[in-house]
Amino acid sequence: MRLLTHNMLSSNVKGVTNGFPLGIEVEKVVEKQVELSADFLINIFSKIEWKALVDASRAVGYAELPDQADASMLDSDEFLRKFHHALLELHLEEGALLCPETGRRFPVNKGIPNMLLHEDERGVSHGGCRKSNTQLRRIKYFDRKTSLSWAEQCIMMAVDKLKTTTSALCKFCDCGKCPASA
């Protein structure tokens, strides 16, 4: 995870009003060189929260960024190189991000921050699924096959049922067209 991404991430825990910037817990940092694009840096400069970038770069062990920066500094090659290095070449590989308000820890493994919330943190119910892959593939196939003609299926089901008993039909069909729902 580059510090660019750290600069774009906020805590998403329900009820947090200012979740930026996230704190950084460092276990492992890696450096990966990438070619410098002055155009990109000049364009992105105004979108970067400078203090957050300075603090993040210090947290991962790079102390070369000036405390303050303004657009006039973008004329300096040296400034661009430092800005580029901090923003794009330092990766938080292992560690965590911390919500500044609640202290909630978002782990970072293999360079990937995990911003997924538990149920009570987002207030939306997400059940777990324990079915096997094969079963799921079958369900998927079945759904794809049938989903396009749900209304037709509904009618067919109603007609089938009509042969036996009409009273059971109303439970199954509300399409408004077939005898069951009429």
């Binding site: 774009m8 991430l9 906020s10 805590s11 998403n12 990937i112 921050p113 919330l117």
Partner: peptide, 15 residues
Amino acid sequence: ELISTDIASGLEKRL
């Protein structure tokens, strides 16, 4: 840059 998240949760403010 990869993020495990629901849609773009966490990125919506700054991105």
